[in-house]
């Protein structure tokens, strides 16, 4: 379980994206985080995995406190929490296969045979086994995101954080990625937090929805509850033309 309490993060006096965020993410669920651009959704995700240091507050992943954690504890937490970046963030100088084997070799320190086996297995999961020797620059946007997902799940984390997984993709590819998120949740029982602006994605992946406004979580409920919410942004989000 991920528990966030009174989380604050400011970059300057004017730029204070998080001003007391409270959030619980139960095991086995997929929480979708919504909010206007610049509302601090990505800051929240990066804080959970320790890429940003919050000013105050608490983030607990199971029993481990992220805020103020030393490098050793952060490494332990990062083995449990995978992060899927917006554009895949694939290592440009490595092939697809090497991108996937990188964390296995460097972090899990697996043997060559086991690495090869896992790379094939997880590339198969995302349907890109035939791209194993391609460079990231030879892939489409959707393929890069799929490889990014595969590279993250290959270390078998218990939690997955997705930063706008469908942004910039055509509707069909976005739908495929969203289905992949659901498939992973069902097959691997991964607990996920998905930051998105995409109603398609939300409709497919979300168990619960949290809405961040003015630096705080102002709504946290089921997908159905969010459709009935008195928050205009949420209602408009669900009644967007693309959904109908």
């Amino acid at each position: 379980m991920i528990t966030i309490r009174n989380l604050h993060k400011a970059f300057s006096a004017q730029l204070r994206p998080l001003r007391g965020v409270d959030l619980d993410v139960a095991d086995g669920t997929t929480l979708t985080v919504l909010g206007r651009s610049g509302s601090g959704k990505s800051v929240l995700l990066k804080s959970i995995v320790g890429l940003l240091e919050p000013d105050r507050g608490s983030i607990r992943v199971d029993d481990d406190e992220v805020v103020g954690a030393d490098r050793a504890l952060l490494l332990k937490i990062r083995r449990k929490v995978g992060y899927v970046f917006q554009n895949g963030a694939l290592y440009d100088s490595l092939t697809v296969g090497e991108n996937l084997s990188f964390p296995l070799e460097k972090v899990l320190k697996l043997g060559r045979d086991e690495i090869r086996e896992r790379v094939h297995e997880y590339l198969g999961h995302v349907g890109l086994l035939d791209k194993i020797n391609k460079m990231p620059s030879e892939l489409s946007g959707g393929q890069r995101k799929r490889v990014g997902v595969a590279r993250t799940i290959i270390t078998e984390p218990r939690y997955l954080l997705y930063d706008e997984p469908t942004t910039g993709l055509d509707p069909q590819t976005a739908k495929d990625i969203a289905k992949l998120v659901v498939q992973l949740q069902e097959e691997l029982k991964i607990t996920s937090i998905v930051v998105t602006h995409d109603p398609y994605c939300l409709n497919i992946v979300a168990d619960r929805v949290a809405f961040i406004d003015d630096g705080k979580v102002v709504f946290n409920g089921t997908k159905e509850e969010s459709k009935e919410s008195d928050i205009e942004f949420l209602r408009e989000f669900f009644t967007a033309e693309v959904i109908s």
């Binding site: 890429l51 992060y83 554009n87 440009d92 990188f102 964390p103 460097k106 972090v107 590279r151």
Partner: peptide, 16 residues
């Protein structure tokens, strides 16, 4: 380039 394309963050987040 790695910084702006979040590759450095990705490496850090993976535990390297």
């Amino acid at each position: 380039s790695m910084k702006v394309s979040e590759q450095i963050d990705a490496m850090d987040a993976s535990g390297v």
